[in-house]
């Protein structure tokens, strides 16, 4: 493990009774990398991600996130990561500003930090005029971008994105990915799950989970040339078709 490794996973396994949701996966993610975590529904992506976020205890295996052990140091991990779920996770009955304030508040940020950064984020999102509108009144694409900004507001080392662009139009998705690139440039490691194969192309490296195991892990171009496929779509279908489990 070199100094630039920020997530390191070795033989990580999670069993629910007889069912092995995650079957001894191993990989490493470097600092500032955009790491795509792909797999069909039910392949075990979410379970793996929940373990890395400290939400769920592994059955066996080793892993460290931002240099902290996922068994013993979940508190420290939580302080150093951001998270955005597939469900839209801002409060619809709070204003843009109140949402930002609330989430910054639970990370214990100082008032001056919150104030300065809020102005910056609002400017970046072009939401200055709408800062005191209820989030309910924003279009979905903007909500999604706002949710991402909120997830990295406390300047975490890693941000976990669980299918962040579900239901969003292609233009907004493109803008969303620009924000992800920007975050990666700022040194935030991005760990993202997605079902969109064009998005997989945007990642630095991609892993594909099938039936709880990682079946492939490489750069998008590496995967394509290895499997002699012309697109990520083809790569995904070739691997995912081997799955014995049915999706949920």
């Amino acid at each position: 493990m070199n100094n630039d490794t920020i997530i390191s996973v070795e033989g990580l396994t999670k069993r629910f009774g007889d069912f092995t949701a995650v079957d001894s996966i191993s990989f490493q993610v470097g600092k500032g990398e955009i790491f795509g975590f792909l797999g069909a529904n039910g392949a075990g992506k979410t379970t793996a991600m929940r373990m890395l976020c400290g939400l769920s205890m592994p059955t066996s295996g080793k892993a460290s996130v931002a240099g902290f052990d996922i068994y013993k140091q979940t508190e420290e991990i939580k302080r150093n990561i951001g998270y955005m779920s597939q469900k839209f996770s801002l409060y619809e009955d709070l204003t843009v500003r109140e949402n930002i304030r609330f989430y910054a508040g639970i990370y214990g940020k100082t008032n001056s930090f919150i104030k300065e950064k809020t102005a910056f984020v609002l400017k970046q999102l072009h939401l200055e005029k709408d800062a005191d509108k209820l989030v309910r009144s924003l279009p979905l694409g903007w909500k999604q971008k706002l949710a991402f900004s909120v997830a990295i507001f406390h300047e975490p080392q890693i941000v976990f994105l669980d299918e962040p662009t579900g239901g969003v139009d292609p233009v907004t998705r493109r803008e969303f990915w620009n924000m992800i690139y920007k975050a990666a440039e700022d040194g935030i490691t991005v760990f993202v799950t997605t079902h969109y194969m064009d998005e997989a192309e945007y990642c630095d490296r991609v892993s594909i989970m099938v039936d709880g195991r990682i079946d492939a892990l490489d750069t998008p171009s590496g995967l394509k040339s290895n499997l002699k496929a012309s697109s990520m779509d083809e790569v995904f279908l070739m691997l995912a078709r081997k799955a014995k489990r049915t999706g949920d």
């Binding site: 939400l55 939580k78 955005m84 469900k87 996770s89 409060y91 990370y107 997830a151």
Partner: peptide, 13 residues
Amino acid sequence: EMGTMEVMLVSPV
């Protein structure tokens, strides 16, 4: 239901 609980659980609170 809204998914905000999950975000909360991932936070240090």
